[in-house]
Amino acid sequence: MSSETPGASAAAPAADAPATPPGKPSGGPRAVRRTWGGGLFASELGVLFRRRRTWAMLGTLAAIPILIAVAVRVSSAVPAGRGPAFLDRITQNGLFVGVTAMLVSVPLFLPLTVGVVAGDTVAGEAGLGTLRYLLVAPAGRVRLLLVKYGGAAVFAVVAPLVVALVGAGIGASLFPVGPVTLLSGDAIGAGEALLRLLLIAAYLAVSLLGLSAIGLFMSTLTDVPVGAMASTVVLSVVSQVLDALPQLEWLHPWLFSHYWLDFADLLRQPVAWDSFATNAVLQAGYVAVFGALAYGRFVTKDVLS
């Protein structure tokens, strides 16, 4: 989460960034461009993570594990098998706060925050009237699109990580931490359990990349950021509703939300990597399709604002 600070200083208008690499005259325009792209990306991250909105969303995500932990702490013991999975394990092991919080935030909170960030990428600039200034610089629209998607992807990595780490932290401070019982009944040490927790966060980050690409495409369609955000979030809900209809079983493996909850496979012994791989392939497909759509739309778009 601290990765956003270096970009803060580079947030100045991107136009003056090309002047920065004077030490490399022999590199030619190519080297200049590359630095410029890095600068643009850093600036994008700086803008993203200095927004109050971003911090509010991350704060809300961090509140989920805190709420869960405090609620379990002050209430009586949860009977086994009731409530969300893993909830009954929290009193025995605080690390399960992170798992439970991620499980709870997968259906709505994570897609919601990612939808807001991804939907804002292009439409937000258009809405503010800054998009054409970004395009005046000789970076090209493709680069801008890539940078915008990169920013959304970084948020998709940070968001589940916040839930996992805050969950592990609050769990460790309120409950005992010890060997973690996996779904298979085997126990692993706390260190390895933390690694599994990070793996789950990585799984969710990968899961959200497809949604980010959809959000990016939506964002190129409109100049009203709220519209892009809302349609992205609605799509994620629609996908989950379709996933729950047994009549549409043939469609299920193609829905980007289909494998979201399969991160439990990382809590088995040995780890079942199949769902991780399948999910990654599926998300890559969504990134490719909606990335191409976003490219087609954004490159041919008449930028008026």
Partner: peptide, 16 residues
Amino acid sequence: RKWLRWVPAVAVPAMI
């Protein structure tokens, strides 16, 4: 040329 920009958007799903 404008039409060409949409080629990836068609080609990627077709390839998949």
